[in-house]
């Protein structure tokens, strides 16, 4: 399955959520479907999208935070899984699009191409809900139940090693950051 098909399938559920993505294909494809003020694309600092998600989650406990991560990024910060699992935060849906590749950095294989099992790491780290999906339907179902769950959820979507042809969009990094912050702070005041 393609990552953009997964994103399209859950886009209606993302519209009202606080969403943090990594750089590269996830950011480009989500923007191609439609940028919103509640979407933040972390265009560097690989590995930290979930840590930002955790900072948002403890600050906005009434909101469900969706983190759209990747295999290469998560492998750079595996400690985030045990940190989140034992942080007391339950309002995070952590999705990893696993394409087994550092796609936006030239396409070298990641350790998941050799069999590293990110769902297994998440489960062993203490994340209460974990799952994986190999079809768009499976992903859509798993994502919907993650949003309904009152527990922290980790979900691996196994996607093709393909993505966009360009890595830049016309959305400025700081424009995105301040627009997103304004949105989050309006939620905090409610």
């Amino acid at each position: 399955m393609k990552r953009i098909e997964c994103l399209r399938a859950v886009y209606p559920q993302l519209e009202k959520r606080v969403v943090v993505t990594i750089m590269g294909a996830v950011a480009i494809e989500l923007q191609a479907i439609g940028h919103r003020p509640n979407f933040f694309y972390l265009q560097h600092a690989m590995g930290l999208a979930s840590s930002i998600g955790l900072g948002l989650a403890v600050s906005l406990p009434e909101q469900k935070i969706v983190v759209l991560d990747g295999d290469g990024s998560l492998l750079m910060n595996l400690g985030t899984l045990s940190t989140m699992a034992h942080s007391g935060a339950s309002n995070i849906v952590h999705v990893v699009f696993d394409n087994q590749s550092y796609l936006s950095a030239g396409g070298s294989p990641t350790a998941t191409a050799q069999g590293a099992d990110l769902e297994g790491v998440a489960r062993a780290s203490g994340i209460p809900n974990t799952g994986s999906a190999r079809s768009v339907e499976e992903f859509q179902t798993a994502f919907a139940s993650a949003l309904d769950s009152s527990n922290l959820t980790f979900l691996v979507a196994h996607v093709d090693t393909s993505g966009p042809s360009d890595w830049l969009t016309d959305l400025g990094l700081l424009e995105n950051r301040f627009q997103f912050a304004r949105h989050c702070q309006s939620l905090a005041r409610r």
């Binding site: 943090v20 933040f40 600092a45 590995g47 930290l48 999208a49 979930s50 840590s51 930002i52 998600g53 955790l54 900072g55 948002l56 989650a57 403890v58 600050s59 906005l60 910060n77 400690g79 985030t80 045990s82 940190t83 034992h86 942080s87 950051r177 997103f180 912050a181 989050c184 702070q185 939620l187 905090a188 005041r189």
Partner: peptide
């Protein structure tokens, strides 16, 4: 929040700041 590695702190602080 007890972290496993200090890099996480930068992300957590960024998330908290963005949320006000």
């Amino acid at each position: 929040i007890r972290v496993a590695k200090e890099e996480e702190c930068v992300g957590i602080s960024a998330g908290a700041h963005i949320a006000g």
